[in-house]
Simulated scan of single mutants.
Amino acid sequence: MPDPTDADGLTVGQVSARLGVTVRALHHWDEIGLARPSLRTAAGYRLYTAGDLERLHRIVVYREIGLGLDRIRAVLDDSTADVPGALRAQRAQVAERIERLQRLSTGLDRMIEAHERGLLLSAEQQAAVFGPEWNPDWPAQARRRYGDTTQWRQYAERAAARSPEQWQAVAEEMADLERALAKAMDAGVAPGSPEADQLAERHREVFASYFPLTRQMQVCLGRMFEDDPGFAAHYDGIRPGLATWFRRIVDASARAHGIDPDTAVWE
């Protein structure tokens, strides 16, 4: 609040320090006629009186609650202005902003947790979505193994925004693909055939629910599905020999796109 002892007026710098506003803002408010100093020194420097400070204080208060300068001018100068109505409207906008910030805060919490945990589902939810053979320790193991990779960050970003129902849809889509792979192998579909290539491409599309998968990365993944005991047991449990057959159709698809499976790297 203004000090009644400032009878001779305060300079722009003194007002800036007292009210916590920039000199530039004070100059701007003077230029647009929102808050002009009542006095000038002999050298032409601005001097603000106690009355000027009172107006400036009100401007600062209204600006801090979010009113624009035109609305502030109306509140201060228009005797017919509905000040309570203006303040209620501003309160409603503030409430909306708070709600948006709360949603943002919740989203940030989920993003942090997803980067640290990977899968934001309880053990019970994981079992319901992925089946009784699912090990709820697998996400933590994956975090320790892949947590510093680009793919883990991409996976975390998707996981943070995904509900249990959406994870259920992902699981069902992957299960449908695995059944289609087994059916094709049983039917004698040859690696390199149009049907096999279509299945390899479908796998890349479905796997993108976790992170984008290039064809070179898919070749590396096919190798892991065949060589890793856990993955091999899963695919061969669906159909004996499926892990190897899947690796072969991925290799053939890669060759058709100019990629040598023997030199493919994870990129």
Rank of each mutant, 00 (worst) to 15 (best):
E205A: 12
W152I: 01
M224R: 14
I259L: 05
D148P: 02
A140L: 09
R248F: 07
V75N: 06
M217L: 08
R248W: 08
A42W: 04
L10Q: 02
V250K: 03
Q102M: 11
I65E: 05
R204S: 12
R144L: 12
A7H: 13
Q166F: 06
L76G: 00
W266H: 13
L104N: 10
P229N: 03
R73S: 15
E178G: 08
G222W: 02
P132K: 13
M1Q: 12
P136Y: 00
L181F: 04
V189E: 08
A42R: 09
A128K: 06
P261S: 10
G68Q: 07
E205C: 12
R103D: 13
S193W: 04
G192M: 01
N135G: 07
E116V: 06
V219G: 07
R103E: 14
I238R: 15
S122T: 14
P229A: 04
A95G: 05
I238M: 14
R58F: 06
I249V: 11
P2A: 02
V21H: 00
S16H: 02
R73H: 13
M1Y: 07
A182R: 02
E64R: 13
V83I: 15
G230N: 11
L199T: 05
E116M: 08
G131T: 04
P136Q: 01
R103K: 11
A175T: 13
G33P: 01
S122H: 01
E205N: 12
L242K: 08
A182I: 04
L53K: 03
G131Y: 03
S253R: 09
L34D: 00
L120A: 07
Y235P: 01
V250A: 04
Q102W: 07
A171R: 08
A169V: 15
D262V: 05
G118Q: 07
E205K: 15
P37I: 01
A74Y: 03
T5A: 15
Q218K: 00
R239K: 05
D262R: 10
L119T: 13
A200H: 03
A169E: 12
V60M: 03
D109P: 02
Y62W: 07
F246M: 14
D262Q: 11
L87T: 01
R40G: 00
Y48A: 05
P37V: 00
L34T: 02
A243T: 03
A190C: 04
Q90P: 07
V23D: 04
T11I: 00
L19Y: 11
I98S: 09
L120V: 11
L39V: 05
M185N: 03
E31P: 06
V129S: 13
A140V: 09
A92W: 09
R91S: 14
